[in-house]
C-alpha cells in the first residue's frame, strides 16, 4: 500500500529532486528558480514571522464570504427558476447571456464600486461563483423526475414541502458539482484580484515579495496558494461523496 503510493507519487519526487539540483549545479539561474530547499526555508520563515498566517487568514475569509454568498443566492435563484415558470422566464435570459462572460472582467468594476479592500474581492468572488451555482441548481432542479414530484403532490405534500424534500435533494448532485466549479473559480478570482490591488492577502504577499525580488519567498507563497486550492478541492470532493452516499 505504502509502496504503491510511493511509486505513484515518484514522478513528483523526481521533479522536486530536479528542482533542487538544477539551480545548484548551474543548469538554471538560481535567481529564476531558487532550489527547493531554499524555498522550504523561506516558507518556514514566512510562517514563523506570521506573514503567511496573517495574509492567509485574510484570503480565506474573502474566499469563504464570497463563495458562501454565491452558493446561497445561486441555489435559491436556480431552484426558484426551475420551480416557477415566471421567475424562469424573467431571470434565465439574463443568466444565460451573462454566463459565458469571462468572470475576471468584473474585477475592475468591483474595485470601482467597493474600493481597494476586502469588499471588492468578496464581490468579485461572489459574482464569479453566482452563475455556475445558479445554472447547476436550475438544471438539477429541472432534471428531477417529474413522477417523483407528482407522487409527492398526489400523496398530499404541500408544494413547499415538495420543493424542500423532493426537488432540492434531487437536484443536489448537480448543485454540488456546480459548487465545485465555483470553488475553483473563487480561488482564481481571489488570487487575481489580490494581485491587482490591496494591502493584504496571499496574492498581495506574493506580488509584494516578487516586486521586492525575494524570489525564494515568492515561490513559497505561490506554492502555498496552489496547495490551499488543491486541498480545498480534495476536502470538498470528500465531503461531496459523503453527502451523496444515499444515491444508488
Amino acid at each position: 500500500m505504502i509502496l504503491r503510493f510511493l511509486i505513484r507519487i515518484f514522478p513528483l519526487v523526481l521533479l522536486a529532486g530536479l528542482w533542487e539540483i538544477a539551480p545548484r549545479i548551474g543548469w538554471i539561474n538560481p535567481e529564476a528558480l531558487p532550489p527547493a530547499s531554499a524555498v522550504a526555508v523561506a516558507w518556514y520563515r514566512l510562517l514563523m514571522s506570521g506573514d503567511l498566517v496573517y495574509n492567509g487568514v485574510s484570503s480565506l475569509i474573502n474566499v469563504s464570504a464570497g463563495l458562501s454568498l454565491g452558493i446561497v443566492v445561486g441555489m435559491a435563484a436556480g431552484v426558484l427558476m426551475a420551480w416557477y415558470p415566471a421567475v424562469d422566464a424573467a431571470v434565465s435570459p439574463l443568466m444565460k447571456s451573462l454566463y459565458p462572460m469571462p468572470k475576471s472582467a468584473l474585477i475592475p468594476v468591483m474595485i470601482l464600486w467597493f474600493g481597494l479592500g476586502a469588499g471588492s474581492k468578496i464581490a468579485s468572488i461572489f459574482m464569479g461563483c453566482l452563475l455556475p451555482v445558479v445554472l447547476s441548481s436550475y438544471n438539477g432542479a429541472r432534471g428531477v423526475e417529474q413522477t417523483l414530484i407528482w407522487s409527492a403532490l398526489g400523496l398530499g405534500a404541500s408544494r413547499r414541502r415538495v420543493l424542500w424534500e423532493v426537488v432540492v435533494p434531487g437536484a443536489l448532485p448537480e448543485i454540488m458539482a456546480g459548487i465545485r466549479n465555483a470553488l475553483a473559480i473563487s480561488f482564481i478570482l481571489l488570487v487575481s484580484s489580490e494581485f491587482l490591488v490591496g494591502q493584504r492577502g496571499l496574492g498581495y504577499l506574493i506580488s509584494f515579495l516578487g516586486d521586492g525580488g525575494v524570489y525564494d519567498a515568492m515561490f513559497a507563497g505561490v506554492l502555498t496558494v496552489a496547495a490551499i486550492g488543491f486541498f480545498a478541492d480534495r476536502v470538498y470532493l470528500f465531503f461531496m461523496q459523503r453527502t451523496l452516499q444515499w444515491r444508488e
Binding site: 511509486i7 505513484r8 514522478p11 482564481i188 488570487v191 496574492g203 516578487g210 496558494v225 496552489a226 496547495a227
Partner: peptide
C-alpha cells in the same frame, strides 16, 4: 501514465493563476 497521472491530479484542481508571478519572472 505513470509520469503524468500524479502531475495531472495535482495540477487540475490547483489555482493556476497563482503562478502568474513565476511566469512573469521567467
Amino acid at each position: 501514465r505513470w509520469f503524468f497521472d500524479p502531475l495531472v491530479s495535482v495540477g487540475l484542481p490547483m489555482p493556476k493563476v497563482a503562478f502568474l508571478p513565476v511566469f512573469m519572472l521567467w
